[in-house]
């Protein structure tokens, strides 16, 4: 319950934060909403020598219209994502996924960027973001660099963010008019996803014109269910067609086995939940 002692800095700007990071050495953690970091520090599963709190950097928070995309500050909370009118209009998938994260108190503190950089395989934000083909904007000692979502998640709790870098914004293309749904499966309400499926579909005249499917907790990183996406394109808007396409959901996955179910069960769940997510997204 009591973390190890650490040094603390709360820079007011990204530039200042980068300076602090540059001087801080290796054993440093960035503190965003802290809803994953602080619990592991309390259990002393993490004991950084220094914590750099991003909570005082105003420029990292909020959602902005950026033409064909929304520019979302990394420190925007899950609660903001779930209730923001721009997101509701252009990226309802993110709103729906954010509303399922943990519990209301955690959503008030926990951040979009924090969850993405934490990259927990069972976390609810990475798969939807992957499905949107978002771009991650990183600030570093050598300036800004952009990473595509497909390249961002690299392994268990591992992303493309290097030491000394800060995720500042996520630029997410608009999917205005697409149907969206996040189907999350848990044993109790307040639980990490056992498996979850993020689905977006664009329907045109009774057929599915485009589909984007992201899978949560089906591997060490979030995955795109590309075989399902391909099978859905051009499919008629029927439950049967969606079920047939969803049978490909477990292809290329590598889920873990744990107390909540073994890999075979997770593969099965991926198919069922994909079917349900797509049906809901399509408004059937």
């Amino acid at each position: 319950m009591i973390p190890s002692a650490f040094d603390y800095a709360a820079p007011a700007t990204v530039a200042e934060a980068l300076g602090v990071l540059a001087d801080a050495g290796d054993d440093v953690k960035l503190l965003a909403g802290g809803q994953s970091l602080i619990p592991v520090m309390k259990l002393r599963l993490a004991d950084p020598a220094m914590v750099v709190d991003l909570g005082r950097i105003g420029e990292l928070s909020g959602v902005r219209d950026d033409g064909d995309a929304l520019l979302i500050g990394a420190m925007t909370t899950h609660h903001q994502i779930a209730t923001d009118p721009l997101i509701a209009e252009h990226l309802p998938l993110l709103a729906k996924a954010a509303a399922t994260v943990a519990d209301p108190q955690v959503r008030h503190r926990g951040t979009f960027g924090g969850a993405l950089v934490h990259a927990d395989p069972a976390g609810d934000m990475p798969a939807p973001v992957l499905a949107t083909d978002a771009t991650f904007i990183l600030a570093g000692p050598n300036g800004e660099r952009r990473v595509a979502a497909a390249d961002f998640f690299q392994g268990y709790f591992t992303t493309a963010v290097d030491d000394g870098e800060i995720l500042t914004h996520i630029r997410v293309p608009k999917y205005t008019g697409w149907g969206a749904h996040y189907e999350k499966f848990t044993r109790v309400a307040q639980q990490w996803s056992i498996v979850a499926v993020a689905a977006m579909v664009r329907v045109e005249g009774g057929t599915i014109a485009e589909a984007r499917i992201g899978l949560t907790n089906m591997a060490s990183t979030p995955l795109r269910a590309t075989a399902v996406e391909q099978a859905l394109v051009g499919a008629p808007l029927t439950r049967e067609a969606i079920a047939t396409a969803s049978a490909h959901a477990a292809e290329g996955t590598d889920p873990a086995s744990d107390l909540n179910g073994d890999a075979a069960y997770r593969r099965h769940l991926a198919e069922v939940l994909t079917k349900r997510a797509v049906i809901a997204a399509a408004g059937l």
């Binding site: 619990p39 309390k42 259990l43 709190d53 209301p104």
Partner: peptide, 28 residues
């Protein structure tokens, strides 16, 4: 000690947070 039980819930600037999952310095 894992941000599950909610017994420590308080309001920070009017919204609920779990006060076991915030450092006091963040409330400055």
């Amino acid at each position: 000690d894992t941000t599950n039980c909610g017994a420590c819930t308080v309001h920070l600037d009017g919204v609920s947070v779990k006060s076991c999952t915030m450092f006091a310095v963040q409330a400055d």
